[in-house]
Structures are given as structure tokens and as C-alpha cells.
Design a protein around this nucleic acid. Sequence first.
DNA 1: CATGAATGAGCGTTCATTCAT
DNA 2: CATGAATGAACGCTCATTCAT
Lengths: 194, 194, 194, 194
Amino acid sequence: MNLRERKTAKKKEDILRSASLVISRKGFRQTTMEDIAAELLMTKGSLYYYFKNKEELLFYCHEQILTTVLDKLRKIKQQDSSSSEKMKAAIKIHLDTAIREREIFNLAVKPEQIFSSDYADVIVQKLDEYAELFDQLILHGVQKGEFSVSQKKMARMIILGAANWIQVWYSPEGEFSKEEIEQVYADYLLKILT
Amino acid sequence: MNLRERKTAKKKEDILRSASLVISRKGFRQTTMEDIAAELLMTKGSLYYYFKNKEELLFYCHEQILTTVLDKLRKIKQQDSSSSEKMKAAIKIHLDTAIREREIFNLAVKPEQIFSSDYADVIVQKLDEYAELFDQLILHGVQKGEFSVSQKKMARMIILGAANWIQVWYSPEGEFSKEEIEQVYADYLLKILT
Amino acid sequence: MNLRERKTAKKKEDILRSASLVISRKGFRQTTMEDIAAELLMTKGSLYYYFKNKEELLFYCHEQILTTVLDKLRKIKQQDSSSSEKMKAAIKIHLDTAIREREIFNLAVKPEQIFSSDYADVIVQKLDEYAELFDQLILHGVQKGEFSVSQKKMARMIILGAANWIQVWYSPEGEFSKEEIEQVYADYLLKILT
Amino acid sequence: MNLRERKTAKKKEDILRSASLVISRKGFRQTTMEDIAAELLMTKGSLYYYFKNKEELLFYCHEQILTTVLDKLRKIKQQDSSSSEKMKAAIKIHLDTAIREREIFNLAVKPEQIFSSDYADVIVQKLDEYAELFDQLILHGVQKGEFSVSQKKMARMIILGAANWIQVWYSPEGEFSKEEIEQVYADYLLKILT
DNA sequence: CATGAATGAGCGTTCATTCAT
DNA sequence: CATGAATGAACGCTCATTCAT
């Protein structure tokens, strides 16, 4: 990748970052291309030099975040530690992403409602892998006797649902620090599995 | 309330019911006044006789649902049963509402993002009361020695968050019946409090 | 058809007439919805009350003109007169339409380039019928010994092509009257068939 | 003209050739500067070094084609052959150009609709000369007794109109070869003049 | 000279809202 | 009361054009 290409790649990332920011503030439907451009001190026409339409831009916002969080999750799975420790780590990662990426992470919830099928397929596949990784963590814990839970899928949905909700009320200025919250959530949610 | 007023009130309720339905199907932003009117075999102009604009219509949709669910919750609180039983009942009520009213219930999440401040204030107040009722259930359980939880607010957020998430994956045609799900969720979430 | 519907139908026709006018002046691609609306002293948004998009509006412009001219042509075919007389009458009809409907009539030429397939199919079918009627006139003339022409299809293309071209140079203020032109064209083009 | 100038001139011709090609494929209004640049493996910015805007580029496309075809026509006029032979040759040249340059040739039809007046004037002048050459061919034929036609201008319009129309239906894969078509057209159109 | 990048005006379309009848 | 009709602001998107490098 030469200088030019690096510059373009960098700009694309800038746009994605700004877009994620604005979308988290205003919500996806309310965010216009003009809003995103304004955040970057560009005109909306310029955005189309980098992304072919609003949908594509949004897609890459998701893709980037999901790819990053998936990577982190895969590493946790390969760690050499107890299932409880791994699950706690996974929950913390999830909380961290949910807090930092708010809206974007949340939207991934029903991709078919937002994306045309080509994009939705990719998102769905990543979400499936994400869920699968959690399911494996639970399964291994059960097999090793650490966890005891009969409805594994529902347990996973409860854990992820609870964690996603953090976006609704977390605020940096709140009563608890991010780290405290992550600790308490991890501890409490672990109770479901035991 | 004379006949005319009763007729108008009845019509308003019809509109709210239909609006809730359509919004749950298509999502709030995607639902046009025309969609709502079509469901009622009216024309969109007529809606403006009953509600002064789309925001007001949406507000009353929320208000109605929140009022209903609050009523149910208050009754549970006054029941003569154990805290565990009350909490399980509350969770089931919440799940039931989340499933039946999907979108509407979900929107209540961030009222400031959707409503201008006058409306938002009312919604926020009801949501606060809703949270307060849950907190009281937890507190009483702790006082009676049934529950054991130090971070009461976070426990409540976890429970409600997990329950809200049900919308994302519940389907009438799914593997589990609504009643099974409610039972499992109630059981699992109770673990957090003990 | 009650009063309301008649009013709407009338308005639709008004719009089609105005649209045809503006398109003939400026050409299809250069004509904006705003142009058409302005001609009618409306705003462009209102057009969408009557037609679902620009393509549909244009389609009906064509459909109307083609239907009218086809009707006239069918009647000529059934006349009780010589093939020469019929052909002359047909040419005059064609010239008359080409002059009065200029651009619209011209655009019908390559429907696939302008319309999406559903609309294009209808136009193509009408154009085919139009061509077929001319071909029958030629064929009957040959069978009756009035005409003598081996390449019937090319003869038809030559006749229609020449007639279409009238749009390019005809002007009401020109040297010749419309009737004179029609007479001369009909006479000269008949020579091709004999 | 030094080397640099020759290079530039060559490049300009390349651009005109490619532009004509793309425009014939996609139509003038649908052809973007980007399309033209892509065909030449350039970027659209570069086109502006050679032509000051899209209109100028289009103008030279026309100018080039019209100049070429005018040259051919002048040579035919000076040939030492009968008026019929000359006219047939002229018709074939016209058909050949109409087929090869489709869109461009067609656009010349109403220059005022496409070009600002300075450019339009030049085009109109060339078109006038083109028509004049045809008129002279007809006139000489009449004077020599080969042709017999009272409305010379209309005869010319008929001939050119019919010939232009060839674009609408000619296809290299069609039933007849280009040469066959040219022969039939020339024969049939000559009938008008006799 | 050529290019990548940016711009801005304009277009088709949607939709909440208004209002005369 | 209800409706048909109209409005206008806003949005996503395109593209000819410009310009620093």
C-alpha cells in the first residue's frame, strides 16, 4: 500500500469514526449524510467519493466494530484459564464495546431491517459467529462442571441482552466507573450459569 | 363525558391501537402517517383531528402502554406473596409487554432522542416510576432475607435489560412457547438476586 | 365515475398535456419535475399525488398518444378504399401526430433505453402493432397489384423514418402549410411503393 | 506545429474518438465525463486540460464528424457520373455515417437544444452546407432531365429523414447486411426523385 | 501534464402538515 | 368530521467542474 492508498484508507477510517459518533448521538435514521459530512468539515458530496451510498457507509461502520470485537473474543477463547474467567472477560469486552460504540453495536441487532440482503448477510454471519463463541464458552464450562445451565441459548441471550442494555444508562459522569460496572455485571451474570 | 366525547375518546383509542400495531411491524421512523391511516381505513388528514401531530400520536402510544404496565406492576407489588414470586410475576409482565408491544416499548428507552422535552418529561417520569417499583421489589426481598444483592440498581438494570432483549429473538413460530420463555427467564434472572 | 374521480382524471390529463408540452420544448432528459409542475402552477411535490414517479408520468404521456394514433390507424385499415388512399391517409395521420407530439412521439423509438422493462414492454407492444398495421397496408396493396415492392419491411421503415423527420424542420410559420406538407409527403412516399 | 502541439492534437483526437464511441453506446445525456475518461484509462480531471468543458468536447465530436462527411459529399459532387449515381453514393455515405456515429449524428438534429449559441451556429452552418449539397445534387439532376421533382426541399428532407431513421433499427446482427440495406435504401429513395 | 480529492448546484422523491370543501 | 389535494422542507444521490500537488 503506497502513500496515496494509505491516505485514502486513513480518510475512510476518519469518516467511519465520525459517522459512528454522529449516529450514536442522533440515531441512524435521524443522521443525514450532511450531518456526517459536517462533523468532518466536508460537504456531503465528498462522502460519495469514499462510499458509494449511505448504506455502504453504515455497513462498514458495523463491519469494523464487529470484526474488532470478534477478534478479541477469539483470543479470549484460546486463553488458558477457567471457563468462569473466560466468560467474565468476554462479558467485559462486550460491555466495553457496547459502551463505546452504542448505537452502531445496537443496530447490528436486526440487520435485515436496515441492510439490503447482501450487506445483511455479512453482518448476520458475524453476529452468528459472535453468538457461537459465547455458546462455546458456556458449553465448555458445562462440560468441565464449572457451569450448570440447561437452557444454554436462553442463558446466552439473557447475558448479551443485559450487557447491551448498559448503553441505555451508562454515562461517564455516573455514579460508578466503567471498570466497577464491568466487574459487577460480570459477577452477577455469572450467577446465571451456576 | 357526553356521547360525543365518548365517541371521540373511543376513536382515539382505536387510532392508538392501530398505530402501535403498525409501528411494531415497521418501526417508528419507517411508519408514515399514511400507514397508520390506511390500517384504520381513514385518510391521513383525519388523524390530525384527533392528534395534533405525529409526535403527539406517538406520545400517547407510549403513555398508554406504560400506564397499563405500571398498573399491572402496582398490583403485583400489593399481592400477598413472597418477594421471589412477586419478582417472577413482574418479570413475566415485562416480557409479555416487550413481546407484544415491541417497538413502542423499546422506544421508551431514550425518550429525549425522540420526543421534545415536554413529552419526554412525562415518559421519563413514568419510566422512573417503573424502575422504582422494581427497586422496591428488590429492596423488600433483601429486607426479608429472600434476596441477597449489594448493587441493587445494577441488578435491576441487568434484569430489565435482559428482558427487553427478548424482542430481538422472540418469534411466535420459535422453538419455545411464550410461556416457557417467561418461566425460564424468570428463573434464571432470579438467580442474580440470590 | 363520480365527480371526484372525473376531476382527478381531468387533472391527470392536464398534467400529461403540460408534461408533453414541456418535454417537446426541452427534451425528456432536460425536463425536470419542477419544470412540469411550474407549467401547471403547481409544486413538484404535488405531481407525486397523481403519478408515482417521473417514469410513470412519461409512460402515460406515451401510452396516451400511441393509443390515440393506433385507433386512428385501425379505422383507416377498415375503410372501404384503395390501398393507395389508405396508405396516404395513414401517412398523413402519422405526420400529424409527429408534428403535434414531437418529442414524445420520437422518444417512443427506443423504449428500452428510457423505460424499465414493465413499461417498455407495453410501449414496444404498441409500436409493434403500429408497425404491423403499416405492413398490412403494404401487403394488401401488393396483393391487389396496387403496390410493387420486394423489401416490404425496409419500405415501411423508409416511410415512417421520413415522416418522423418532419418534426425537425416543420414550423407553423414555415413556407408550407401543414396540409400542403402532408399532401406532398404522402404523394412522394407513395412512389416508393409503386 | 511543433512536437508538443502535435502530441496534444493527437490526444485530442483520441479523446474525441473515445467520446463519440461512448456517447453512441449510452446516449449523450447519460454519458458522464467519467465514462469518457474511463474509456481512455484517464481520470476525468485530465479531460479538462484538453477541452474546457463537456459542451466543448461534444461540440468537437460533432464538428469532426460533420467535417468528414461534408468532405466526402463534396467529392461525390465533383465526380464525373450521372446524377442518379451521385445521389445513390450520397445516400450510402449518409447511411454509413448514421450507422457508425449514431447518437452524435442524431444530436446534430437540433443543435440549439444542446449547444449554446456560439457552438450551435457553427453546427447549423455545417448542416446547412450539408443540405445545400444535397439540394444541388437534386437540382442538377432535374436540370439534366434525370430527376423530376417539383418540391425539391421536401424531397431532400424525405430522403435524409428516411436515412437517419436507419439508426433506430439497424443492427450488425440483423437480417440484412449493411451493404444490402444501403443498396435498397438508395434504390427506393431514388424513386422519389423520378 | 495528470491525478486525487473536493465542491456545490441540482434532481427525483418522501412525507408531515395544512386547509378548503 | 372527513377527505382530497396541495405544499415545502428535507434527504440521498449525481456529476460537471475546480484545483493543489
